[in-house]
Amino acid sequence: MNFNYNAFILGALAVTAIYGSNVFCCALCRLYNIRIMEFSVFLSSGFGIHRANVAGIDFSLGWLPLGCYVKPLGMAANAEERSQIAPEDQPYAFFNKPGYLRIVFLLASPATIVVLFLTTYIIGITTSAVPPMDALFSYMLNGARAMFTSQVSHEAFAAQTQQILQGNSAVMIAFLILLVVFLVINIVPLVSQLLSSADGEVTGARRIVMMVAMIVFMWLALWKIPMFIFSFFSWQQNIMYVIDCLLGLLMAGVAAYFLTIAVVRVFARQHV
């Protein structure tokens, strides 16, 4: 099995969507003078690859490349936790900021994806690397039909794929499609978060809706979409593609993580 350069680049590009929402949230914290408690790149299940405390922020690099997050001071604190925050830190707590800011934070990931999609498309259409928007969305719509219905056969969709890739950049088209997929699967967790209260508590019918939403999310993200994509290739090709994609994603994520720490250290020294 040969190294798949396109898969590696696609994985590296995927970090911009995952990591970009962290940058968005950090910019909001900076704008509203909110203290950042944690900054995580990837998830740590059981153990982390690296941890550091810089300028009062706990940085962590996980091994599971499924997401990133920023934890502002007091974002989901209940009454008891709020009372434990020192009085001098209260002005920098999330719960003392405008109420609409919670919605803005929740929209950080979808907004980042939309910006990346538009930026990538503008670059692609300017350089003739991607098809026109109507052709691109027609292709993605046929993909959804092939995935969920029998209106479009796998063979017809595979033929359309070959056609749309002619004269265009496979990586840029794949990245645009990946961003749309990210946006779709982000809607479910977004709905779940919007259903929760400001202190993170969920009761009654909201809990049921959230459970159903998360089941749908897991089904789409971990089964339906991957299995549809894998159905067009052999298991050997799929294994190599996933490995190379994860390699690109991990390397870009590690680079972004340590670059962030370096930038924070520089800013911290300047304000000493």
Rank of each mutant, 00 (worst) to 15 (best):
N2H: 14
N4D: 14
F8V: 10
F8Y: 14
F8H: 09
F8A: 11
L13A: 08
T16Y: 03
Y19D: 05
Y19R: 03
G20W: 08
S21T: 15
N22H: 07
V23Y: 09
V23R: 11
V23M: 10
F24L: 09
C25G: 10
A27F: 08
A27G: 14
L28K: 00
R30K: 12
R30H: 05
L31Y: 02
N33V: 09
R35D: 00
R35V: 05
M37G: 05
E38G: 06
F39R: 08
S40I: 07
L43H: 13
I49C: 02
H50D: 15
N53E: 15
D58I: 04
L61V: 01
G62S: 08
W63G: 06
L64H: 08
P65T: 05
C68R: 11
C68W: 09
C68Q: 01
V70F: 09
V70Y: 04
V70H: 00
K71A: 03
P72R: 00
A79Q: 13
E80W: 01
E81N: 00
I85W: 04
I85D: 03
P87W: 07
Q90G: 03
Q90H: 08
Y92T: 02
Y92C: 04
A93R: 04
G99H: 00
Y100K: 01
I103K: 11
V104S: 02
F105P: 02
F105L: 00
L106D: 02
A111Q: 05
I113L: 13
I113K: 11
V115N: 08
V115W: 06
V115C: 14
L116M: 07
T120I: 07
Y121S: 02
G124C: 01
G124P: 03
T126F: 11
T127E: 13
A129C: 13
P132L: 00
M133Y: 15
F137L: 06
Y139F: 07
Y139T: 07
Y139C: 03
L141G: 09
N142Q: 14
N142R: 09
M147R: 06
S150K: 05
S150G: 03
S150V: 14
Q151L: 13
V152N: 04
E155M: 10
A159R: 12
T161L: 05
Q162A: 10
I164V: 03
M172P: 07
F175V: 06
L178I: 10
L179P: 03
V184T: 05
I185D: 04
I185T: 15
N186Y: 15
N186P: 04
I187N: 09
V191W: 06
V191K: 09
Q193R: 06
L194Y: 04
L195R: 02
E201I: 08
T203H: 12
G204S: 10
A205E: 09
A205C: 13
A205G: 02
R206K: 06
R206L: 03
R207L: 13
V209S: 14
V209H: 00
A213E: 01
F217L: 10
M218T: 13
L222Q: 14
I225D: 03
M227D: 12
F228M: 03
F228E: 08
I229E: 13
F230D: 12
F233N: 14
S234F: 07
Q236Y: 12
Q237L: 12
M240Q: 13
Y241P: 10
Y241N: 15
Y241M: 15
V242Y: 02
L246E: 01
G248N: 04
L250T: 10
A252M: 15
V254W: 14
A256D: 08
Y257M: 09
L259E: 13
A262E: 08
V263W: 12
V264E: 11
A268S: 15
R269K: 06
Q270N: 10
